[in-house]
Every structure is written in structure tokens, then in C-alpha cells.
Design a protein around this nucleic acid. Structure first.
Length: 350
DNA sequence: GAGATTTGACCGGC
DNA sequence: GCCGGTCAAATCTC
């Protein structure tokens, strides 16, 4: 019961915090995707809270999907926990685990990460994963690893991913993501990388440093950011391939002695921005070159969605499949960074 | 000792 | 019956 109450409190608290974040974002010019993401997270939190109240302990393990909640029979078929024994509940949970494979509609995507680029491998995507299995796959030279979100039990996050080395090129890992992160880490990642957060940080810096505001001046450091497109692809359940970039700060931008740049760097460090993306997100190898890997979620948070399929996205396939493999440098001039978002708000990183 | 990983067994889908 | 996905006990690591 204590565990259920804790989970319930966690979900409701998360929902409240996310709602406050959304409120702060309403008056900003943050991207629609950012706000939509917050709305989805809020709904997810309250769905889980409601599910806990309806199902008791089973709710932690079996999170209803949007589709199941939308089902007219969902609440009609749900019965109070008191109507079933613990064993029945456990058995039902066990059955649902297998049933959901077929019935639960999940978005999937594949990401190929070339380890020679400096990334440490497919696990480095900003989330904490726990390996729960490994299988030799018929016809594959390498075994497939099964990972699920570390916060599966504590927060009911059902995101999983499968990692397998490519038969053609062992330096390439094929990563298939299944399910959407509903853990707090997901919202933190989204907030940390949201255009709003980055933009507001710059705004605050201007205030704190008492600099004269120049309306026409764009955030100079951010203009110098670049995206490097390498062999990073995604694939959803519809077999649509897109390309995701490696997110890089030029060395000249971070730690070059430039005061403005140093302010940005210090702010990120003070807010634990980099570590909030987890050490996995920024590998030691990439930190030297200030090169970060961005998952579709991160890309979406930055408002760069024309080549990115979000989990619930129904966007039509883009021309990404026709994009050249190799190395792209794209200016962020067209990326909308919100200067009004409080990156220095410690609540965002707690 | 807590958390993560390994690995054999189990289950459902095909 | 085979195969992929998951579970859970044993083992490992810090």
C-alpha cells in the first residue's frame, strides 16, 4: 500500500510540476512540440494516477496506453482491486504483459549509431536503461540485447529498446525503441533540451550581466551551434527512415575564453545541464569535441521536426531517406530558441 | 548490501 | 514446434 501511495503521489506531483512548466511556457514562444510534449506528459501522469486508483498494485506494472484508455470498454471492464485476489491480480498482470505485445499499439523506431564517431554505443541516448535479457536471433551473427527503462518499477515507465550489432558492419548498432518514456527523466530531458530552456537561459544571462539589450541581436553563441548528420537513422513501425543529427558545439564555442561563451558554459554546468542528459548522453569521447547525440525526442524538443518522427507523430515521410549519408553541417539560424524559459530554475533539475 | 548483468526457463504468437 | 520477448534466480560489480 505504501508503494502504491508513493507511486500515486509521484505521479500527481509530476503532473503538477509539468503543469506549472506548461503554464510558464504558455507565455513564451516555445515551440508547439514542446508544449504538446508537456501536455502528453501531464496526461500520462494523471492516467497512471487514475489507473492506480482503479487497479491498485497492478497499475504500476501495467500502464494503460492511450488507445486502451480510449477504448469504450476500458473503464467498464476495470474492476476494483478488492474484487480480485492478489494472485488473480498477479496472474492478470502476467497475462497482460504478453497480451500487450499484440494489442498495445506502440511506436517503434530504429537508430543506427556508428560507434566510430566517438559515441560509446547505442546505450548512449540520454536515458538510463537496464538490461533484462539477451537472445541469439536466428540468422543474425550477433545476439540481441533487451533493455528497459531503469524507472520501470519506480515510475511505471514502460519504454524498452532492443540493441543488436549489424551483421554488415559490427561497428554499427541497430537500436529499436519501443514505447514512450513516461518517467521523470523523459520530461527533464525534454525541458533541458527544449528551445525554451536554452533561449531563456540566454535572456537571464543578459539580465544578470546587466547587458544592454539589443532587440535585433540574435543569441550569438547559439548561432554557432551546428548539427552533424552522420549514420544515425530512425525507423518507426511504418518503416519510414529518417536521419537524426549529432548535436555539436564547436570547440571554439565552449571554453575558448570568450566571456559570453563562458557564461553559457558556466550556466549549463551550474544547472547540471550536461549531467542531466546523463553521462550516457554525452560520452567522454564526445565531450572533447563537444559532440552530443540527439535522439528523436531531443530533436523534437528543439523544434527540428521536419526530419523527425515523434512517437505519436502522424507526419508523412520526409525526404530524409533521400538524404546523403555522411556528414552534414546545418546552421541553427532557423531553430527557434526561447529566451524566456528559466533554465536556471533548480526545480527543473531536481 | 544495493543495483546491474547474465542466463536458462517460460510464455504467446505464428 | 520454432522463435522472439520477458521473467527471475544466480552472479557480478561497486
Amino acid at each position: 500500500m505504501d508503494c502504491e501511495q508513493k507511486t500515486l503521489i509521484t505521479e500527481l506531483t509530476q503532473g503538477k510540476e509539468l503543469a506549472e512548466l506548461l503554464r510558464n511556457n504558455l507565455n513564451s514562444i516555445s515551440s508547439l512540440d514542446t508544449r504538446q510534449f508537456l501536455v502528453e506528459q501531464i496526461l500520462s501522469s494523471y492516467e497512471k494516477a487514475l489507473f492506480l486508483l482503479n487497479w491498485g498494485g497492478c497499475a504500476v506494472e501495467i500502464k494503460p496506453t492511450i488507445s486502451t484508455l480510449e477504448s469504450p470498454n476500458y473503464f467498464a471492464n476495470s474492476s476494483p482491486k478488492s474484487d480480485v485476489s492478489d494472485q488473480d491480480c498477479k496472474d492478470q498482470c502476467q497475462k497482460d504483459v504478453y497480451k500487450k505485445r499484440k494489442t498495445e499499439p506502440r511506436w517503434t523506431e530504429q537508430v543506427k549509431v556508428c560507434s566510430v564517431t566517438g559515441l560509446e554505443g547505442p546505450l548512449e541516448d540520454g536515458y538510463n536503461w537496464r538490461k533484462y535479457g539477451q537472445k541469439d536471433i536466428l540468422g543474425a551473427n550477433f545476439p540481441r540485447g533487451y533493455y528497459r527503462c531503469t524507472h520501470r518499477h519506480s515510475q511505471g515507465c514502460l519504454a524498452t529498446k532492443q540493441v543488436q550489432k549489424s551483421d554488415q558492419d559490427p561497428t554499427i548498432f541497430e537500436v529499436t525503441y519501443r514505447g514512450r518514456h513516461t518517467c521523470l527523466q523523459a520530461s527533464r530531458l525534454a525541458v533541458a533540451l527544449s528551445p525554451a530552456s536554452l533561449k531563456n537561459d540566454k535572456s537571464k544571462q543578459d539580465k544578470d550581466s546587466c547587458q544592454v539589450e539589443q532587440p535585433e541581436q540574435k543569441p550569438k553563441p547559439l548561432k554557432e551551434l551546428s548539427f552533424n548528420f552522420r549514420e544515425v537513422k530512425s525507423q518507426d513501425s511504418n518503416n519510414v527512415e529518417d536521419i537524426f543529427p549529432l548535436f555539436s558545439f564547436p570547440d571554439a564555442y565552449i571554453g575558448n575564453g570568450n566571456e559570453e561563451n563562458d557564461i553559457f558554459k558556466e550556466s549549463m554546468m551550474e544547472n547540471d545541464f550536461l549531467s542531466s542528459l546523463s553521462s550516457a548522453f554525452i560520452s567522454p569521447a564526445t565531450s572533447d569535441s563537444s559532440c552530443f547525440a540527439m535522439t528523436p525526442c531531443h530533436m523534437n524538443s528543439l523544434g527540428i521536426d521536419h526530419n523527425v518522427r515523434t512517437p505519436e507523430s502522424n507526419l508523412a515521410p520526409t525526404s530524409a531517406t533521400n538524404s546523403p549519408n555522411g556528414y552534414w553541417d546545418i546552421s541553427l539560424d532557423n531553430v527557434d530558441f526561447d529566451t524566456n524559459f528559466p533554465l536556471d530554475n533548480p526545480e527543473l533539475f531536481t
